[in-house]
């Protein structure tokens, strides 16, 4: 079969905004795809893409990393001063900043940054006893980085324990021990959860 067979789609280019749209009512898949295409096109026009071609992933633009780091540091300082709400705000800004990286930058880097920030935000939420938010943030952190992230594992376990969701907490900790078998904190938390389960069973 020859390569140049394709289905002609009813597309239209808006002369001013250069946005692509469909001339007929598009199917939902086509509509989603065109929206993604247009947003990608806008991000390609930003100044860090010379010639509107995304640069190769490896040398990363250091500016954004520096900003993310700075936000984390500010958040940590606020946390140490027990200004937890401020710390949460800073961490949230940092998370938005890290997730706002253009798509073609290394995803491993984003994972690293985001997992640290979510773990810290979980801790700040825990300090304010906002257990549900803490649990969700810690889960995000773990989702981004499963290995070498014992703190985040511990934090979600702790949040679940505090909310009295003992069964979930037990399952979570069991899962965490598959990744971090020798972590003392996790083992201690496991003991706490088992004790709580025993008491409840009584």
């Amino acid at each position: 079969m020859e390569e140049e067979t394709f289905t002609l789609l009813p597309l239209h280019l808006d002369p001013t905004s250069k946005a692509i749209s469909s001339t007929t009512t598009p199917s939902s898949a086509l509509r989603d795809e065109l929206a993604k295409l247009n947003s990608l096109h806008r991000s390609l026009l930003s100044p860090d893409c010379p010639n509107s071609i995304p640069p190769p992933p490896v040398p990363v633009n250091p500016k954004r990393s520096a900003q993310v780091n700075k936000l984390r540091e500010t958040g940590n300082t606020s946390f140490r001063k027990s200004q937890h709400a401020d710390a949460i705000r800073m961490y949230s800004l940092g998370i938005d900043m890290a997730l706002g990286r253009p798509g073609w930058e290394p995803s491993g880097l984003v994972r690293e940054e985001v997992s640290g920030l979510y773990a810290n935000r979980a801790q700040a939420h825990m300090a304010l006893q906002q257990w549900p938010e803490g649990a969700v943030d810690a889960e995000c952190s773990v989702e981004m980085k499963k290995i070498g992230n014992a703190k985040a594992w511990w934090r979600r376990g702790k949040c679940l324990l505090e909310m009295g969701r003992l069964d979930e907490a037990r399952d979570w900790i069991a899962q965490s021990l598959e990744f971090e078998a020798n972590e003392q904190d996790l083992l201690a938390l496991k003991k706490d959860i088992d004790n709580a389960l025993l008491k409840k069973g009584k």
């Binding site: 295409l37 990608l40 390609l44 509107s52």
Partner: peptide, 15 residues
């Protein structure tokens, strides 16, 4: 209507 600009084509190629 003008020709489709290269940047749009590049975006489409990336997709």
């Amino acid at each position: 209507s003008p020709k489709v600009p290269d940047s749009v084509l590049k975006a489409a190629l990336l997709r």
